[in-house]
């Protein structure tokens, strides 16, 4: 692989990583604060992408569509919280898994009914179309760079909110010692709603920015949800910084792994075998990383502070 290709793959990895972060951040907060395991978090990503598609066709503007999508994703998340999830907070994890599983089945099917089973796509917004030269022979799409920037910006914003505001203080306290938060007399239900809404919006945002570069299809949130779980396990449950670091790590390893693995195995095995083993190995890399973390740092790379 040439150096240029390597650079491109690194950028792609970063781009995938920031998107993973956006999804994992909501998931880890919801889990950290409420102890709620939300398998339906992935479909909120899908909902974001489909909303962007629908609004773009209605309004013709990516930017208006993006804004409307995020507002709708927020409202949608809050509606789900109100109708279903808040009745599940005190229940055991199996109940939470089954109910959110039911929601996934429903929404995936609904997407298929409304938009059809085929994959959809939307064009990259004009303002961010085209590519810019990074080195003499390397050009990279502006849109992808913009998504990396957006992801990092959200990460920074989230970090400031969580570490420097009152709500953030409560979220951190809730993630480590939930009893403490209720003891403080805080309206815990409202805190839960805020956290949940923000999580849903972040996932929706990830879906919106993914829409112009990835295929929009029913079930697109399912696989990314599991990768987001891997991110959380590697980063440490309830930890925003952990989710960011692990998101980038997983994004890079997965992306680079897929292009490097076949080549790497070809140096050990004969080509025909390498073609078999390479892709298999590449798809296993992030799980192997997760296993290693579990062996050496079972609480994750950057566990939420105060977790004893």
């Amino acid at each position: 692989m040439s150096f240029t290709l390597f650079l491109i793959q690194c950028l792609n990895g970063l781009q995938y990583g920031t998107m993973l972060f956006l999804i994992a951040a909501g998931l880890t907060l919801v889990f950290g604060v409420m102890g709620f395991i939300n398998l339906a978090h992935g479909v909120q990503y899908m909902v974001g992408a489909y909303l962007a598609f629908a609004y773009l066709h209605l309004t013709g503007s990516f930017w208006i569509a993006a804004l409307l999508s995020m507002v709708t994703a927020l409202v949608f998340g809050l509606a789900l919280e109100f109708l279903v999830f808040r009745h599940l907070y005190g229940r055991d994890h199996l109940d939470q898994v089954l109910a959110t599983f039911g929601i996934i089945l429903f929404l995936n099917e609904l997407a298929k009914v409304i938009f059809g089973p085929a994959t959809l796509s939307i064009p990259v917004p004009e303002l961010l179309s085209g590519s810019i030269p990074l080195t003499a022979e390397l050009r990279y799409p502006v849109y992808r760079l913009a998504t990396i920037g957006a992801g990092i910006a959200v990460a920074g914003l989230l970090y400031i909110v969580v570490s420097h505001t009152r709500v953030g203080m409560l979220i951190r306290a809730g993630a480590t010692t939930p009893q403490m938060v209720s003891a403080l007399g805080v309206n815990i239900e409202r805190l839960f709603m805020i956290v949940f809404g923000v999580g849903a919006m972040l996932a929706g945002f990830a879906g919106v920015i993914a829409a112009p570069i990835f295929a929009i299809e029913p079930g697109m949130g399912d696989n990314i949800l599991i990768v987001a779980f891997v991110v959380i396990i590697i980063g440490g449950i309830g930890s925003i910084r952990g989710a960011f670091l692990a998101g980038l790590l997983v994004g890079l390893i997965d992306t680079l792994g897929r292009s490097l693995a076949t080549m790497a195995t070809a140096s050990v095995f004969p080509p025909s075998m390498a073609d078999q083993i390479g892709p298999a190995l590449a798809s296993m890399l992030i799980y192997i990383l997760m296993a290693a973390i579990l062996i050496f740092r079972p609480k994750g790379l950057l566990p939420a502070k105060g977790a004893a």
């Binding site: 889990f31 102890g35 395991i37 994890h93 898994v97 696989n223 599991i226 779980f229 891997v230 959380i232 396990i233 449950i237 078999q276 892709p279 298999a280 590449a282 798809s283 296993m284 799980y287 997760m290 579990l294």
Partner: peptide
């Protein structure tokens, strides 16, 4: 919950391994 997530992840690993055969 960790157990749930980790079994899910390893299950997915097996799935992707099968798709790459």
């Amino acid at each position: 919950v960790y157990f749930l997530m980790i079994t899910l992840a390893f299950g997915q690993m097996a799935y992707f391994t099968l798709t790459s055969l």
